[in-house]
Amino acid sequence: MDWAYFLQQLINGLTLGAIYGLIAIGYTMVYGIIGMINFAHGEIYMLGAFHSLITFLICQAAGISGILPLTLLLMLVVSMVMTSVYGWGVERIAYRPLRGSFRLAALISAIGMSIFLQNFVQIAQGARVKAMQPFIKGGITLMESPNFNVQLSYMQIIIIVLTFVLMVVFSTLIAKTSLGRAQRACEQDRTMAGLLGINVDRTISTTFVMGAALASVAGMMVTLYYGVIDFYIGFLAGVKAFTAAVLGGIGSLPGAMLGGLLIGLIESFWSGYLTIEYKDVATFGILVLVLIFRPWGLLGKPEVEKV
């Protein structure tokens, strides 16, 4: 066995997994609070990618792209803020008016929203793949072996560290603040929470916004890491991130991150050792298996059927 190759796949898998995990958190939070899949979440991630790309290009045009930390910070902040507005809008238009109505209605309106956003970006920004020059180059060579050097690029370090920091910040936010308490209360019983003076509408909006903010960071990472994006990247990433959320146990934040990492690793190892073509089949296969044998996921709680 070639350990160098294995290590490289592990690093790549973790990087990819961190990105999936960030998207998955949005699914898990929204599902937790309104009990529905946010079908437009993949599109939010795609919008995040576009916003960060455009911010980068603006920085470049303004001649400040040489100042690396400033550019990164701008990309992060701008794409988080702008994309959050889209997250807010999705909830406001596709979900809120249908809350408490027929379940499938919200699902269809969310799918409609997703189709709309996809085509909106396609029209506004063109259907072609957007390729960007590598921005953060270089890395550390971890291990040298005769035919293969294990690389940990700076970009990978940034992704993993940033994901970790965001996880800590958001977990604290949800565990310690009154916002987090309001979210948990709404998860348990929305009507009761409302009666007790919690602004349910605002809490749900905030949940969408938080999910969107994290997804936009994932979008930014993908833009920087792969350097190519198009209007269609949201669908597959969305489905995979949802798989990650289910794998980890829907409703559980650490679960979403764990699920994301696992999906990333599986994908990376599957492509590395088996066939790259069927890597998506592997992901979906896992989703199906998890749902059949452990529908509550790795870290979730089994739901009891009340009779």
Binding site: L47, F50, H51, L53, I54, T55, L57, I58, A61, V78, V81, M82, V85, Y86, W88, G89, F120, V121, A124, Q125, G126, R128, K130, A131, M132, Q133
Partner: peptide
Amino acid sequence: IAFMMSIMILGVETVDRPTGLEL
């Protein structure tokens, strides 16, 4: 809200040029 949603996606187009992406 409309401003924030449109300023980048509508207001700035990424154009492919031989030299790379331009705005």
